Amino acid sequence: MESKEQIANAAEQLFLKYGVRSVTMDDIAKQLGISKKTIYQYFADKDEVVELATLRILEREKKLLAEVQERSENAIHELYLFTRYIRQHIVEVNPSILFDIQKYHRGAWKIYQDFKGSVFLQTIESSIRKGMEEGHFRADIKPEILAKLRIEQVNLAFNNEIFPKHEFDWTEVHLQIFYNFCYGLLTTEGVELFEKYAKTLTTHATKN
C-alpha cells in the first residue's frame, strides 16, 4: 500500500507539471496505480493533498536557500547560484501553480504566504546586507524594501496572464527579471564580479 508521503510526492509532481486545478484525485490515483479510495484513507480531500505538497515544495526551497548561502563565496556568488538554479529548474514548473493555489486552496496559499513572509524575505534581506558589507551592493539601498520587491517580482514572473507560456520563454522571463533586479543592486566592483560569474555560467551552459 502506498504511504501518505508517496501519495503527496505523486501529487506534487503532477501539480508542478500540469498546475493544481487541472489535476484531480483520480489523476493522482492513476499515477500511482491505486484506487481513489486509498488516497482518502490518508487525506480528507484535495485541499489536504495540496497543502502537504506545498509544504514539501517549500521545505525543499528552504533547504536550497540554506545550501546556497552555505556554499557561496560572497553575495555575488549567491546571485550566480540562484541564476543557475533558475536555468536548470524553473522550466519544469507550470506557470498556473501559484494562481491555482491562491484562488482555490486557501490553506495552501496561507502556507505559501507564511513562507514568503518569513524564510524567503529573511534570506533575501540577509543576502542584500551581506553584499552591502562586502562593497558589492550599493550603500544607499534599503534591504527591507528591495527584499519585498524581489518577492513580488517572483510572483509576477509566475503570472500566466502577464507572461503567457505560449508567448514567452518562461526561463527567460525569470532570468530577465532577476538580472534587472541584480544590476539595480550592484556597485561597479559588484558588476565586474557578477559578470565574471555570468561568463562561467554561459560557458557551462554551452558545454552542456
Score class of each variant (00 low, 15 high):
1 M>C: 03
2 E>T: 02
2 E>V: 11
3 S>Y: 00
4 K>M: 12
5 E>W: 00
6 Q>K: 12
7 I>C: 06
7 I>V: 07
8 A>G: 04
8 A>I: 06
9 N>L: 06
9 N>W: 00
11 A>C: 09
13 Q>F: 01
16 L>D: 00
17 K>Y: 03
19 G>P: 09
20 V>D: 11
24 T>W: 01
28 I>K: 05
29 A>H: 06
30 K>F: 02
32 L>R: 04
33 G>F: 05
33 G>C: 07
33 G>H: 08
34 I>W: 02
34 I>M: 11
35 S>T: 14
35 S>V: 07
37 K>H: 02
39 I>W: 02
39 I>E: 07
39 I>A: 03
40 Y>T: 01
41 Q>E: 13
41 Q>P: 01
43 F>H: 04
44 A>G: 07
45 D>Q: 05
47 D>I: 03
47 D>H: 09
48 E>A: 08
48 E>Y: 03
48 E>Q: 13
51 E>T: 09
53 A>H: 05
54 T>F: 04
55 L>Q: 13
57 I>N: 11
58 L>W: 04
62 K>M: 07
62 K>F: 00
65 L>Y: 08
66 A>R: 09
67 E>R: 14
67 E>D: 15
67 E>Y: 05
68 V>H: 10
70 E>N: 13
76 I>H: 09
77 H>N: 15
77 H>M: 07
77 H>S: 11
79 L>D: 01
82 F>M: 13
84 R>T: 12
84 R>Y: 02
84 R>F: 02
85 Y>I: 01
87 R>N: 06
89 H>N: 14
91 V>D: 08
96 S>T: 12
97 I>N: 05
98 L>D: 10
99 F>V: 08
100 D>V: 02
100 D>I: 02
100 D>S: 00
101 I>R: 12
103 K>W: 03
104 Y>N: 13
104 Y>M: 05
105 H>R: 05
107 G>N: 10
107 G>V: 06
107 G>I: 04
110 K>D: 10
111 I>F: 04
112 Y>T: 03
113 Q>K: 13
114 D>M: 09
122 Q>R: 12
122 Q>N: 14
122 Q>P: 00
124 I>T: 14
125 E>Q: 15
126 S>G: 07
127 S>E: 04
129 R>K: 15
132 M>T: 05
133 E>L: 10
135 G>I: 07
135 G>H: 01
136 H>W: 11
137 F>E: 06
138 R>I: 06
140 D>I: 05
140 D>E: 14
142 K>S: 08
143 P>N: 09
144 E>D: 15
144 E>R: 14
147 A>E: 08
148 K>M: 08
149 L>W: 08
151 I>Q: 11
153 Q>L: 14
154 V>W: 08
155 N>M: 10
157 A>R: 10
157 A>G: 08
158 F>V: 01
158 F>D: 03
158 F>G: 02
165 K>Q: 03
168 F>W: 08
170 W>V: 13
170 W>Y: 09
172 E>L: 07
173 V>A: 07
174 H>E: 05
175 L>G: 03
179 Y>Q: 13
180 N>G: 15
180 N>D: 09
180 N>K: 10
180 N>P: 00
181 F>D: 10
185 L>E: 09
188 T>F: 05
190 G>K: 06
190 G>T: 12
191 V>W: 00
193 L>Y: 01
194 F>D: 05
195 E>T: 14
197 Y>L: 02
198 A>C: 02
198 A>Y: 15
199 K>D: 15
199 K>R: 15
201 L>H: 11
203 T>V: 12
206 T>C: 01
207 K>N: 09
